[in-house]
C-alpha cells in the first residue's frame, strides 16, 4: 500500500472571470521512504496540488478527487480535528519563502515547540530538549541561543533550516518541500538539498520535492512527475527520464538545463504556460511544441503506457528505442 495515494485530483479556483482549472486530474503514488520530484514551470499547478493534499487552499478553491488517501485513510472523510492530526504530524510541508514563512512575532523556539506541543505528549522540558536536538540536526550552530532568536535575526538559509526543523519535529512520514531552495543563494541551495536528502534517509521519510530545476531533480529524486498547465505530462523514474524523455516538454526542460560548468543559463522554452483565458484546444503544450501537427492542435492526447513514461502525447519521443 503506498503512503500517499491520489487519483484524479482536480482543483479549480473561482475567479472574477469564471472557474480556473489549476490542477487537472493528477495522480500520485508515493511509497514510504521514497523521493519524488514534481517539476514544471511556474504556474503549472505544483504548489496548488500539494496544498490541496494539505488542506491549505483558500475557500475559493474546489477540490475533487477519486482518491485522496494517506496511509490508507481517506483524508476527505476525516473530521477537521482528525485531519489536523495528520497535517503537521504525519505530513509536513515547507515553503518557497522561508523568511516570510516564520511568524515575525514569535521566537524560533516558540514556533518549533508549538508544533511539538500540538502533536506529541512531551512536557515543557522534553520539548526544549527536542527543539535543541532538532536545531542541531538541521545544522544550526549554538542551538540553545538560536532558539531565543526572532526570525528577522536569521538569514534565508538559516530560516529554511528552522522551517525544516519545525517540519520534521514530529517525525513525519512524508515531507513536502515546495521549492525549498528557490529563494536562497546558490551556495546555500546545495546545502539545504543535501540536508533534506540526509534527513529523508536517516528517518526513512518520504519526500516530495517541488522544483522547476531539472538539476535539482537529477541530484535528489528517484521518481519524477512532470507537470504542465495543471496536467501530468510524464511520469518516470529519474534515470529513464534523463536518458530518454518521452514528452517533448520534458525534453525541452532538459535542454534548458543550465550548463553547470560555465554557469550560463541556456534559453528557456519560448512562450509561457497557458493561463485561464488562453488554454489551447487539443494538447495543451502544442503552441510551444516543436513536433506539433494538426492532430496535436485538435485532439486531446492519450495517456501512453508506462514504457513510454505515461506521456500525455500523440507522438512520444524515443519510441523506437523502447520498441527495440
Amino acid at each position: 500500500m503506498p503512503l500517499l495515494h491520489i487519483e484524479n485530483l482536480s482543483v479549480s479556483f473561482e475567479t472574477a472571470s469564471g472557474a480556473f482549472l489549476a490542477v487537472d486530474s493528477v495522480d500520485f503514488d508515493v511509497d514510504a521512504g521514497e523521493r519524488l520530484a514534481i517539476v514544471g514551470e511556474s504556474g503549472s499547478g505544483k504548489s496548488v496540488a500539494m496544498l490541496a493534499v494539505m488542506g491549505l487552499l483558500p475557500p475559493t478553491a474546489t477540490v475533487t478527487a477519486d482518491r485522496l488517501e494517506f496511509a490508507g485513510r481517506d483524508l476527505r472523510g476525516l473530521s477537521p480535528r482528525a485531519r489536523r492530526e495528520v497535517i503537521g504530524g504525519d505530513v509536513a510541508m515547507i515553503f518557497q519563502e522561508p523568511m516570510s514563512s516564520l511568524n515575525p512575532c514569535f521566537t524560533v523556539g516558540f514556533q518549533i515547540k508549538e508544533a511539538l506541543a500540538a502533536h506529541t505528549d512531551l512536557d515543557r522540558k522534553g520539548r526544549q530538549e527536542r527543539a535543541v536536538e532538532l536545531m542541531r540536526q538541521v545544522g544550526i550552530p549554538e542551538p540553545e541561543r538560536r532558539l531565543t532568536a526572532f526570525p528577522h535575526q536569521l538569514s534565508g538559509g538559516m530560516s529554511q533550516r528552522v522551517m525544516i526543523a519545525m517540519a520534521t519535529a514530529c517525525r513525519p512520514k512524508l515531507l513536502i518541500a515546495d521549492e525549498p531552495t528557490t529563494a536562497l543563494d546558490v551556495t546555500i541551495q546545495a546545502q539545504i538539498l543535501d540536508l533534506l536528502v540526509e534527513l529523508q534517509k536517516d528517518h526513512d521519510m518520504a519526500l516530495i520535492l517541488i522544483t522547476h530545476d531539472m538539476g535539482v531533480v537529477a541530484e535528489t529524486a528517484q521518481r519524477v512527475v512532470v507537470q504542465y498547465a495543471g496536467q501530468q505530462v510524464e511520469r518516470q523514474d529519474v534515470f529513464g527520464l534523463f536518458e530518454a524523455p518521452h514528452h517533448p516538454y520534458t525534453a525541452a526542460l532538459l535542454d534548458a538545463l543550465p550548463d553547470r560548468a560555465s554557469g550560463n543559463r541556456l534559453p528557456a522554452i519560448s512562450g509561457v504556460v497557458p493561463g485561464q483565458g488562453d488554454r489551447p484546444q487539443g494538447c495543451l503544450f502544442n503552441p510551444r511544441c516543436r513536433f506539433a501537427d494538426e492532430t496535436c492542435r485538435k485532439v486531446v492526447p492519450p495517456r501512453q503506457p508506462p514504457e513510454l513514461g505515461e506521456a500525455l502525447c500523440h507522438y512520444p519521443l524515443h519510441r523506437e528505442e523502447k520498441a527495440a
Binding site: I87, G89, S100, S101, M166, A167
Partner: peptide
C-alpha cells in the same frame, strides 16, 4: 501571510 499558512500546516487549531 505565509506564516499563517505555516501555522495551519503545523496542524494548529
Amino acid at each position: 501571510e505565509d506564516y499563517v499558512r505555516t501555522a495551519r500546516a503545523k496542524g494548529l487549531p
